[in-house]
């Protein structure tokens, strides 16, 4: 693969094992998450509001009988234009034994990345704490932020879980 030669790193055996990632966009940024954490992708429907919840928690929806909270990552990270159209996408995640819906601008595709293709991200400060970033990967001149979605969703920042770890 292109990225491997570009990196110039000697590929170990581990590096050859590729994992699949789902990529989606938030504003101009592209994110990649472990596809095994994704349960399904569906259209946006207006959720039921939860009183006094933070603005990025849009509410809860009925997903075939399960009550699922919906998080709008665009609001959480101040990215993109917040609008809800028939094309707005909700990625239903299955993390830490919970089902959580995430609103994103659009889902791009599914890619394979080996460990060597994921480079550590430089430290920076911002709304998106680097501790949730596994690394950065590039492919066809796109840069993708490989995210530890489970850690992000279960963090206290997301206010999704009682007694969440920081």
């Amino acid at each position: 693969m292109e990225a491997m030669t570009h990196g110039g790193v000697t590929a170990g055996e581990d590096d050859l094992i590729a994992s699949e990632y789902l990529t989606f966009t938030l504003g101009n940024e592209e994110y990649a998450i472990d596809i095994l954490k994704v349960q399904e992708i569906r259209g946006y429907e207006p959720p039921t509001l939860i009183a006094n919840a933070p603005p990025f928690i849009k509410g809860v929806i009925n997903l075939r009988g399960i009550i699922v909270p919906i998080v709008d990552l665009r609001i959480k990270f101040n990215l993109g234009k917040i609008e809800y159209t028939p094309f707005t996408v909700v990625v239903i995640l299955n993390v830490a034994g919970r089902v959580i819906g995430v609103v994103v601008d659009s889902v791009s595709d599914v890619i394979s990345l080996t460990a060597s293709q994921i480079r550590p991200a430089p430290d920076f400060s911002g709304t998106f704490d680097t501790k949730y970033i596994l690394g950065l990967a590039s492919m066809d001149s796109r840069m993708m932020i490989v995210t530890d979605i489970e850690r992000l969703m279960t963090s206290a920042d997301m206010e999704l879980i009682d007694n969440a770890s920081a």
Binding site: I50, A51, N52, A53, V60, G65, I66, I67, V68, P69, R98, V99, I100, E159, L160, I161, D162
Partner: peptide, 14 residues
Amino acid sequence: IKSLEANYRRVNGI
């Protein structure tokens, strides 16, 4: 009755 806490958290008043 469905649990809200299964996938979310306890909400005061709910």
